[in-house]
Design a protein around this nucleic acid. Structure first.
Lengths: 198, 198, 198, 198
DNA sequence: CATGAATGAGCGTTCATTCAT
DNA sequence: AATGAATGAACGCTCATTCAT
């Protein structure tokens, strides 16, 4: 009787352990031994499923990216006025940011790498380009429908995206003072106040 | 005749070299050898002036903090309407962000560490608290003077601070698409549009 | 009905694969995985038939030894003058050397081990002792029959054996410049020229 | 006061230790720790002077090669009849072979690598080409002067070179039965007997 | 018999730190 | 004060061997 293919299961098992370890210790301070221990596998087993430590890091980043992209593309399914859709999306990623707060240090470490390595930076560039583009399309719809004033949709999109990223930092640094969801919603409302046709 | 104290000069010499090296390679990939070479001193000499690599990192972060704090406190000296002051300050830190773009990866690496270590996080917390507080005072002045609507000054402050931080990321990742100064000014203008009394 | 004993077949299957892999990669660089793959068996199966990697190496060396010994003993069956027998034998092992050229690196690796480990060296010692002895008997026959001058048969035997071994090296290193069969035959002829009674 | 440059001294110190360790344990079984210990340095120090284990191996082989080449080129300085020169050279490398017997396993391991890797084989090829060429020139001189019969000088050279190499093996495997110097001299004498004009 | 997933001891290499000069 | 040679602990990765199925 062939054993069920455990490969996917193991890869996830390792990834999950790795995410925790990388979040707790950082890319470099994380030891393969830590990941092995946390995953309940031996060190050798890690190498059956991933070629190297870097490959685990890459897989983890891919995972986070895919998740973020999914959230992004989900935006198109929201209904109601553009304002409402923007608030809905903000609420959604606020919840996600809070759920993932533990893992945000990974993002910053990744940003640091991106700041230094062009190849890595290009990945981020594409992601943020889509981020801004998705928002810009939405904003433009608001302008076209007369819901918003005649503003530059891309500028607004960049503003919203920056806001989201910055809030992740402030809310992790001082969770009591800065609550992502709350502040995010309020910030978007303030912005919408300025956008709406009078 | 006592020689002039060379100690401060050496410490700065090392710090300057370290900043470049850390920016280029990251905390971990930066080698003491690199710093020694770049500073024109011997590896042994580094240890005469700093207890360890971590001590150099700490000194460097202290340096950046002090600089940022100075910029922050400078805000009080701006003149004109609150809107004008806010735009002036944004312009100022935009210029600073662009000048320092090369060093921003250091900030993200530092944020990553802060996300993991409470002691480090507290430093950042105080910094951002002052950041928000300074802005909040300014906003409140705008409200009190009737320049702005009755909004929550702290919320607006958090919004502006988040915006600033997020822009640093987007502008480094895609400098062609996102220009800090330009986008920063526009974003603040959008926000002010929503704040102003009708 | 008992199945035919598959054990010997498997062992040979493994040995054949191992010979190729060891020749291509060397004792240490050869992986049990390589041997498993090449043999068409699973890695676990190797251990059903051989206790360890070293056991496979040992079996392989035993195989080569047996082959060489067989060639050696075959010498007695040659006919004609001693000179003719010597040339026949040289032709024979020349052909063998050329056929086995691919595997000669294994021999050198084995010689290296023998140089370091007494137990292994003793195996080789016996082999070369028989080699020299077989040749010496032949040479002595030539002396006794008056075909050769009064020389030391053992010295000549050692000379011939050394020649054979050295040619293996030179011909593998530079096959275009040194052809085992050709050079071997010529070398033996030269030697015979000096041996023949005037 | 500047310390004397210890670099060359250390490199030799390491090389000497490495030669012993490689001879005793082989390329792969030799541990960097062993070399460190034997050299009286720390493991880290090895890497100050050699880039890697492979670099040490390469340096060692270069050392042996250079030595062998030097012996080879020394041949031109011998005087007397060609027979005498050939015997002198044989005596010389016989002494060398006996002095170096402990290190010969290194040569076989190297031959094994050469058998598998073209780049390595080319090094050996050049060495043996020069070896044969040097001998061939000498032999030809003997022919031209009427000391030797009309034989193919290159064939004789290959014969002598093979003899030398083969003797190294037989004498290490069974030092009591095969004494390099003695057998080498006798073997060359036998050959000369066949070469001399009658 | 046979499999191949899992193990873990072991090694080459790096680099922050020390210290004799 | 300054040097840079030396140290050695630590880590990523490999692979012969085992064993549950």
């Amino acid at each position: 009787m062939p054993r069920p293919n455990v490969s996917e299961e193991r890869k996830n098992q390792i990834l999950e352990a790795a995410m925790t370890v990388f979040a707790e210790r950082g890319f470099h301070e994380a030891r393969m031994d830590d990941i092995a221990q946390k995953s309940g596998l031996s060190k050798g087993a890690l190498y059956l499923y991933y070629k190297s430590k870097d490959a685990i890091i890459a897989a983890m980043l891919r995972y986070f990216f895919t998740l973020a992209m999914k959230n992004l593309r989900h935006m198109h399914t929201f209904e109601g006025s553009v304002s409402q859709q923007l608030l809905d999306y903000t609420r959604r990623i606020g919840a996600e940011a809070e759920r993932m707060a533990f893992f945000t240090p990974i993002a910053w470490e990744f940003y640091a790498v991106a700041g230094r390595q062009k190849s890595v930076r290009l990945l981020l560039k594409d992601y943020f380009a889509e981020y801004r583009q998705t928002l810009a399309v939405l904003i433009q719809k608001g302008i076209d429908s007369g819901e918003f004033r005649q503003v530059n949709a891309e500028t607004v999109a960049t503003t919203v995206a920056s806001l989201h990223e910055g809030l992740a930092l402030l809310s992790v640094v001082d969770p009591k003072a800065v609550n992502w969801s709350e502040q995010g919603m309020e910030a978007v409302r303030l912005l919408l106040d300025g956008l709406r046709t009078r």
